[in-house]
Computed example of a mutant assay.
Amino acid sequence: MPTDVDRELARAEALLDRTRDRHVSQRSRRTKEVEFAKRVGRIAAADALILVGAIVLGFILPNGIGLFGALGVALLLILTTIFFAVFPLNVPPTAEALAQVPLKALPATTERWLETQRPALPAPVRTLVDSIGVKLETLTPQLATLDEGTPAAAEVRKLIGEQLPELVKGYARVPEPLRKVERNGLSPDQQLAQGLQLIDDEIAEMTTQIAQGDLDALATRGRYLQIRYRDEDAPA
């Protein structure tokens, strides 16, 4: 029989879930709006450049650009618009490249990389991916004043630039038919969920410690993520 405390905890958890989902939805909408604005801006700039070039040629050439020239300009405008409408704005980062990213840009770059991995991850852990993305977004401005050479910075880089990508890459190396098969009491799906939850909690702890200025605690915490999913542990 659920107690009043249990019901209050359930309501609090449901509220947190709704708040997180709303934040994720708003973040996704903002990202799409920014991407749309960038695409429109690039299309406008490219089309304007083509039109200016056509006008200049019209003044330079004795007979102007003529009918075929006008058709060529129209075709070029159409092709340019299509190109910038469908071509990716940014090349997705690779996991290997994260090690070279400056600390200040690491959370945003890791978030972009993690988003590219999202479709290949099991549905139950995608809420964790969203939660990590929100926390990485919160962490970004905090790292603006954190010295790259400090032990605290090294802990941040290790967690989100090394351990998080390694966890996801380790899972991706497992053949799909084996991902739900238990090994040593846990399936790869369960190991992934536990690892992502632990990373989510760790990022939250790091964010709190940086906000409090407790960098010594962050640097000397010495926690080791119990992520055992490596090549040597992967099912054959």
Rank of each mutant, 00 (worst) to 15 (best):
T3P: 10
D4N: 15
D6F: 05
E8S: 03
A10L: 04
A10S: 05
R11E: 08
R11K: 14
A12K: 06
E13A: 03
E13R: 14
A14E: 03
T19W: 00
T19F: 08
H23C: 06
H23I: 00
V24S: 12
Q26T: 11
R27K: 15
T31L: 11
K32T: 06
E33V: 02
E35T: 15
E35C: 14
F36C: 08
A37I: 10
K38I: 09
R39C: 06
G41I: 10
D47W: 14
A48S: 15
L49R: 12
I50L: 14
G53P: 09
G53R: 08
G53S: 13
V56N: 00
I60H: 01
L67S: 05
F68Y: 09
G72A: 04
G72C: 01
V73I: 13
V73L: 03
L75Y: 07
I78R: 15
L79G: 02
L79Q: 01
L79T: 09
L79C: 04
F83K: 01
F84V: 11
F84W: 12
L89V: 01
V91F: 06
V91Q: 10
P92D: 05
P93F: 10
T94F: 08
E96P: 02
A97W: 00
L98C: 03
A99D: 01
A99L: 09
V101H: 08
P102F: 04
P107E: 07
T109E: 03
T110S: 01
E111L: 13
L114P: 03
P119G: 05
V125D: 01
L128G: 08
L128H: 10
V129L: 04
L136C: 00
T138V: 09
T138P: 00
T140D: 10
P141M: 07
L143I: 08
L143V: 04
L146M: 13
A154I: 03
R157I: 09
K158V: 12
K158I: 10
I160K: 00
L164K: 09
P165W: 04
L167Q: 09
K169L: 14
R173D: 14
P177Q: 11
E182L: 09
G185W: 11
L186W: 11
L186R: 14
P188H: 08
Q190N: 09
G195H: 11
L196A: 10
L198N: 12
I199Y: 04
E205W: 11
M206I: 11
M206C: 07
I210R: 02
Q212P: 00
Q212S: 03
G213C: 07
G213H: 04
D216K: 13
A217T: 07
T220R: 09
R221G: 14
R221N: 07
R223M: 12
Y224G: 13
Q226M: 15
I227Q: 02
E232T: 14
A236Y: 15
